[in-house]
Amino acid sequence: MDTTTALETAQSLLQPWAQTVTQPEPHRSDFVVAPADLLAAVQALMDARWGYLGAITGVDLPAPAPAEGQPPAESHLAALYQFFNGAAVATLRVTVTHAQPVLPSICDIIPSATIYERELIEMFGFDIENTPVTDHLLLPDDWPQNVYPLRKSFTGFGGAESA
């Protein structure tokens, strides 16, 4: 299966759930998927044995500073589920708000996703429902609650911390 056909297959598989499809690079397709449809979309890819989960990348998308008089816009978090099949890359792009960063867990479909999901929880503050383990993974056990290092609002401890 060459790259183009692979991407076409992915597109037809994800047709029911993809809100928009873009192709930033010849070997890479982005599918924007609603959080509610994520499980079904992943299931469809896996059922068709389309590649494997390469990574889940979290991205913080803080709202730009509001213009005069406007109400502040809502900040978002995006999770990119990247699937690789040969040279082809399919990205499922799921966006949630800071206020309610809830995503379903895909660990039932792909057990190895647990590590990425835990990273999302710890580093970005996602709330992933039904993920098997939620312990601290990388950060020390005494890490403060509700501080997520990879969010843009986090800028270190400002030197107040000392050994």
């Binding site: 390469g54 990574a55 990348t57 979290g58 991205v59 913080d60 990119l80 990247q82 057990p111 190895s112 647990t114 590590i115 990879l150």
Partner: peptide, 27 residues
Amino acid sequence: LVYYLKSSGSDKPDRIKVRTPSLCNWG
């Protein structure tokens, strides 16, 4: 090894995600 790079047009990256091979093999 997987790198995800996101640039916002400045001289600093917006987000860099590294997925290293050992991570996958841990499981």
